[in-house]
Write a protein that binds this DNA or RNA. Structure first.
Length: 427
RNA sequence: GGAGAGGUGGCUGAGUGGUUGAAAGCGACGGUCUUGAAAACCGUUAGAUGCGCAAGCGUCUCGGGGGUUCGAAUCCCUCCCUCUCCGCCA
């Protein structure tokens, strides 16, 4: 959520920044918000004045009654005021609700360092690591590799759930588990993150806190009998750990990492390439989340991105880092780096990480603050980054480490996690 | 799921309708004293929001929401959460 004061004081700036994201109706939305805000305050001032008067009478009545005096006139006056207060309270409430509703739908403002652009074509590559591997043979796609090795079974996954789900088997299941464990170990042992294992079912308030709701309801899996959602990313439960809290300054920065499965309906993705495990309804992910002081958040974003890149470097996978342009950054983010790994069987880069600085956008929604040295409470900045998403990482591993005979070598760093298995061959 | 007991400031814990936004203790911060520290003593110590150039003033908040009343932390309704017992279950 944006700061209403910023909107009041610099509406043109806000409209300009929102428009840079491609919001066509930014002017109208901001005008509407300013109007709600203004009216709400006008009603609230009137209402507060009446309340003040009623409070004064109430105290007076108390005193007089204690003295045994007659208070009929005063109670009559108070009742009269009470009626007006009820009326004004209703007006304040409806305007507040409308304001809130509008505010929750406004995305974050892109940071000044973000390139202006309309869509992903406007993104800029910041760096590249390694090279696309060369093969003596024509590299296969992971769905062929996986099915021939008997480690991935899309048909049976569909039987259980539907399309867009994965059944890992044997060494394939082991590989998924190895990746999860290795990622958690890497980030906790070498990058200073504290491991957490959060709930996967999320209530409405938490979903609002990180920005999934109310705008992206259709993207989420929702329970039928309770007002709960399946976590679309660990960012949601983990960023909400400190909801409604005031942290001590010396607690910051806080680094958390968490493994969770991620559930996404991918509504609207029909027609896009859906073969294999590149776009699925359930995938595993190890997520990095930071709570930091505002003045450090952009340094922290760089560090977090480097931490995520390390995953690919250690696995020996070629990748590039892309800075998203204004038209492509996510709803809650002010600045985002995507990391895209090379998948030889696809002859394409696949997004496996998205590292974002949400600044105080989520902290405002979730009301997460810290008490500064001056005693003032300020909103923390919240960052999140995939470290990394598994299904696509798995694709890159299979396709990069495939051999001419159809087997797949296990990357060096995963060997301790694979129980002695050095390569996966058809069983 | 059933029955019961609870949810008060950073913490412990008073408070069953009238200057209670809230006693007291602890903790924290500042000061006095001290070479320094401790002890002792004195003082300060929630958040949000609005009006105002400011000083300051007002409103709201005792789990959330609603109600009764001139007036609610205190009474009523409802929801959430915690604890105990029973049931069920991994």
């Amino acid at each position: 959520m944006l700061d209403i004061k910023l909107i009041r004081e610099k509406p043109d700036f806000v409209v300009e920044r929102l428009s840079s994201r491609g919001a066509k109706d930014a002017r109208a939305v901001i005008d509407k918000i300013i109007d709600f805000d203004k009216k709400r305050r006008e009603f609230a001032v009137k209402c507060d004045n009446f309340k003040s008067e009623v409070n004064r009478w109430a105290k007076e009545i108390g005193k007089l009654k204690a003295q045994g005096k007659d208070v009929t006139d005063l109670t009559a006056r108070s009742k009269e005021l009470g009626g007006m207060i009820t009326e004004l309270d209703t007006l304040v409430a409806t305007h507040s609700a409308q304001l809130e509703e509008a505010m929750l739908l406004v995305p974050n403002l892109p940071h000044e360092s973000v390139p202006i652009g309309k869509d992903s074509a406007g993104n800029s590559e910041v760096r590249r690591w390694g090279e696309a591997p060369k093969f003596e043979f024509s590299p296969k796609a992971h769905w062929d590799i996986g099915e021939q090795l008997g480690i991935l079974d899309f048909a049976r996954a569909a039987k259980i759930s539907g399309s867009g789900f994965i059944l890992y088997k044997g060494a394939g299941a082991r590989l998924e588990r190895a990746l999860i464990n290795w990622l958690l170990d890497l980030h906790t042992r070498e990058h200073g993150f504290t491991e957490v294992f959060p709930p996967f079912l999320i209530n409405r308030n938490a979903m609002i806190g990180t920005g999934q709701l109310p705008k992206f309801e259709e993207d989420m899996y929702r329970l039928r009998d309770e007002d709960m959602y399946l976590a679309p990313t660990a960012e949601v439960p983990v960023a909400n750990i400190h909801r409604e809290e005031i942290l001590r300054e010396d607690q910051l920065p806080i680094y958390y990492c968490a493994y969770t499965p991620c559930f996404r309906r991918e509504a609207g993705a029909a027609g896009k390439q859906t073969r294999g495990m590149i776009r699925v309804h359930q995938f595993d992910k190890v997520e990095l989340i930071k709570f930091v002081k505002p003045e450090t958040s952009y340094d922290e974003l760089e560090k977090m991105t480097v931490n995520a890149e390390r995953v690919l470097q250690l696995l020996g996978l070629h990748y590039r880092v892309v800075l998203l342009c204004t038209g492509d950054v996510g709803f809650a983010s002010a600045k985002t780096y995507d990391i895209e790994v090379w998948a030889p069987g696809q002859n394409a880069y696949l997004e496996v990480s998205s590292c974002s600085n949400c600044e105080d956008f989520q902290a405002r929604r979730a009301n997460i603050r810290f008490k500064g040295a001056d005693g003032k409470n300020r909103f923390v900045h919240i960052l999140n980054g995939s470290g990394t998403a598994l299904a696509r990482l798995y694709v890159a591993v299979l396709e990069t480490y495939q051999q001419a005979d159809g087997s797949v070598k296990i990357p060096e760093v995963l060997l301790p996690y694979m129980g002695g298995l050095k390569e996966i061959r058809p069983s």
